[in-house]
């Protein structure tokens, strides 16, 4: 991952969130989507992305589909039913975490 260690702990949730919004995505597409949404602020490297995807796949949160595209094989990832439920849990956990951090760091700006 490009810039901060703080993002590292949220990488799996970021991946799950992106896959929740799309039917299926491949690795490079995920890195570009994150770069686009964050306007280049967050850049996910191959060394961080693929191990995270493989872990989520092994946990049964993602399923894969192989397709021949432009002279090569492309591995698409999509959420399983278990993955969809887990995404909702992790997103609410992350929101709770952000709220707590805001109350600590900037009490005046915290969301009530």
């Amino acid at each position: 991952m490009g810039n901060s260690k703080l993002y590292k702990g949220s990488l799996n949730t970021i991946i799950l969130k992106l896959l929740e919004e799309s039917e299926k995505m491949y690795g490079y597409e995920i890195t570009q989507k994150v770069k686009e949404i964050t306007k280049g602020e967050l850049q996910i490297t191959e060394g961080a992305l693929y191990p995270a995807l493989h872990k989520l796949e092994a946990e049964g949160l993602l399923d894969v589909e192989m397709q021949k595209v432009d002279n090569r094989i492309r591995k698409y990832y999509k959420l399983t039913d278990k993955g969809s439920k887990e995404t909702a849990n992790r997103l609410s956990e992350l929101e709770e975490y952000i709220r707590t951090m805001q109350t600590i760091i900037n009490p005046k700006w915290s969301i009530s």
């Binding site: 491949y26 690795g27 490079y28 595209v69 432009d70 591995k75």
Partner: peptide, 17 residues
């Protein structure tokens, strides 16, 4: 093979981009 297939696609996609 599974790791290499993904990396080949990643590198190829970046070069094409």
């Amino acid at each position: 093979d599974d790791i290499r297939i993904e990396l080949v696609d990643h590198v190829a996609s970046e070069i094409e981009s």
